[in-house]
Write a protein that binds this DNA or RNA. Structure first.
Lengths: 276, 276
DNA sequence: CGCTGTTCGCTAACGGCGTTCACTAAAGCG
DNA sequence: CGCTTTAGTGAACGCCGTTAGCGAACAGCG
């Protein structure tokens, strides 16, 4: 067991510290480390492309190795197996999705909470539609009885993604946009789960109420529902274009949140263009 | 191409006609047909058990054949490949799910629409939780870029499943339980899609309005969302027990539909017991 | 420079998979 | 009975993940 792949060699530097001043002090990543990092990136990139082109079942170590001009066993120096490779790229994809949403969010004036929310949520759907294979891996069923493989990288990235929306939601709470449901509606059991939710997701310290968490959950479930249904094509035989339904749900959800609904621009949501 | 598996030999008998009187008239299924049917059933049964035990990736023709005491190529007499076998059992599972919901529905007095709906929807979730592997195949992402394989059996069974709920929903419309949303809320594009929906699902002739279809879609999407999220375990790291959230969503949806929400019985929803 | 321990990538191999093809043996049927 | 259709087999092809052992390249050090 002299080999231990999948362990990102962390430099023990807190991420919020700026890198440049530390690089010389701590460690300049040795040549070996750099080339190693590069091959790992190549592996993930090719895996990703195979995922897109042939679906998750079409991702194979042998094919990746072939495309890289090496042999499959060699990849085991970088990755402890196909499953953990999938977990790795899943983590990357979550980060990418989070970035896509953040970018969209950042493209509108920070004070315009309403438009920011409209935009962010549409960005989520947009990314999902543009990356159905990725979305399936990220939000679809857990493939195996994955007791075996370590999911933490993906889960962590997933949390980072969630945080993107949580911040926006917190703004809504601060601005007291919507009426909280009667506290009678929240059963003790639900309250317990929601508190756990709040704690795990970081806004424990704030005065975030259980009722607010319930609203958040409900909204998230609804959006997840429409988008899943669209990407997984479960209404395909009955409905050609799911966008109107998504917009309708979005409108319902937003008005429930006291957020102004804005009809989408005629050009695609993916395009980030400054409105006139 | 002398072989043509996967084609259920239909006897051209409408299902609503009683069988016995016709059997002799039309065709008594020959001995050969009977044994053939039996082996096909065995194949599907074993496939199903492997699906449950090892997930969808764990279903393999070779393993099935092994367990049956035959060799893999022999299975090709019954099934045109692993993919179409999966489609076949998916169809069966949809019928089974539909039956489970129907049974639950039938276990409460026919006039008590409210309780019937409570019960049916909980039955849906219950079945999903008891059969996560099946649910993943039925409601998860379409595995391949399945241009190749013929999905019709599964799609048809899926429609039958949908019909289970549609009938209940029609009752709600007839009883005029809920207020329809302003027709201004339905964009022309959405209206078009919803009409297609209504037509494909059979209640075209009735006076079912586009607005009603919008409500139905919205409700279905929400329930699908919670259940998917629970079965796919996407909030696992944040929430232990999803039942309270489901119940909360159910309550929201039902009150929106003008249906009385009934708290679940203390014993599990799966258990069908006559209330006192 | 040469020496030494580590990392890398290879070959070979095992067992599993889906699928095709040519073939035999059995079953059905006139 | 003989002929046709069908069920099932064995061998083969080409994939796959994964393990084990080996040699070559490399990094660091005296």
């Amino acid at each position: 067991m002299s080999i231990s792949p999948d362990v990102t060699i962390k430099r023990g530097v807190p991420q919020h510290m700026t890198k440049p001043q530390l690089e010389r002090v701590e460690r300049v990543p040795s040549r070996r480390e750099r080339v190693r990092e590069a091959t790992l990136s190549e592996i993930k990139a090719i895996a990703r492309s195979h995922l897109v082109e042939h679906g998750v079942a079409g991702v194979s170590l042998r094919a990746i190795a072939r495309e890289m001009g090496m042999t499959a066993p060699g990849l085991y120096r970088y990755v402890s197996g196909i499953d953990s490779l999938l977990v790795l790229i899943t983590a990357d994809m979550f980060d990418e999705l989070a970035a896509a949403v953040s970018d969209a969010d950042a493209s509108v004036p920070a004070e315009d909470t309403d438009r920011r929310i409209n935009t962010s949520l549409r960005a989520f759907r947009g990314w999902a539609l543009e990356h159905p294979a990725e979305f399936a891996v990220m939000f679809g069923p857990r493939k195996r009885l994955e007791q075996e493989v370590d999911l933490t990288p993906a889960v962590e990235a997933g949390s980072r993604f969630g945080a993107t929306f949580f911040t926006l939601f917190e703004r809504l709470i601060d601005e007291a946009r919507f009426e909280l449901p009667d506290s009678g509606r929240v059963t003790p059991e639900l309250a317990r789960e929601l508190r756990a939710f709040a704690v795990t997701c970081g806004f424990a310290g704030s005065e975030t109420s259980v009722e607010a968490m319930m609203v958040l959950s409900s909204c998230w479930v609804r959006l997840y529902g429409v988008v899943c249904m669209e990407v997984f094509q479960h209404l395909d035989f009955v409905m050609r274009d799911m966008e109107p339904l998504f917009e309708s749900e979005l409108q319902n959800v937003l008005t429930g949140l006291g957020v102004r609904y804005e009809a989408p621009q005629s050009n695609e949501t993916a395009t980030i263009s400054t409105p006139d």
